[in-house]
Design a protein around this nucleic acid. Sequence first.
DNA 1: GTGACCACCTGGCCGC
DNA 2: TGCGGCCAGGTGGTCA
Length: 272
Amino acid sequence: MPELPEVETVRKALKSQIQDRIINSVDVLYDKIIEYPNVSDFKEKIKNQKINDINRKGKWLIFELDDYCMLSHLRMEGKYFIKESEPILKHEHVIFNLDDGTTLRYNDTRKFGKMHLIEKQNLYIQKPLNELGLEPWDENLDSDFLKDKYSNKNLPIKTVLLDQSIITGIGNIYADEILFLSKINPLKKAKVLKKKELDNIIKYTKDVLNRAIEAGGTTIRSYESSEGVHGRFQTNLLVHNREKKQCPECGKTIVKIRVNGRGTYYCSNCQK
DNA sequence: GTGACCACCTGGCCGC
DNA sequence: TGCGGCCAGGTGGTCA
């Protein structure tokens, strides 16, 4: 389940593999992956565009082309592979035919991923990027910013941390880790958090995501990078996916609850 | 405007 | 062993 560190790992791998390649054509085998524009426009506009760079904003990959930016969200299980003439596999839904004879293949078991093709000048004034909040490393991200954003949030902090319009890039796995390190109960209402707690959230968001990126992301079930490499950060997880195991801080049993439908792991002793 | 809930999807896992 | 049902979860849409 790609979150920011996994997307960053994919971005780096893809950049080293396909930067400066030209897209000769695209085959779309599952239309719903293409969110904007319609499939025929997408295929027509992307033809003969050069991949000049690959960037990232939150969990979105940004393929910088000549006239457009192609945005790709991997959602739950999206992956990219570079292949030559191998047969198309069951879960390969979008095939980019490149000028060197290779293909860039978007593989998504659950078909949740989305792609947009946006004119360059509209990239940050049009959905989806105009709706994203701050990157964890943005200099404007401080406790005053969060205090303001959280002031009317009568929701559990776990839920609010997943709101991409405030801080972008945090997903379910890292939200649990950030709250554990910040010693904040996931059910605590966002609007009552003190400055010190907000400072800790910011500090540990950066810390957790930085370490996860260095480790190549987290592999819990199905995520792997474009080079088929599994992340190593799962060995560093302190609470997520560790139900009934001992808390690494106090030794009490880690519990699993559901917060707004999301599986949430925490230590009831450390996170009061 | 806010919050709760559901749909989208498929494979893995568990219980019977 | 085989089957049915639940669960995983990021995001957008709908409804109260």
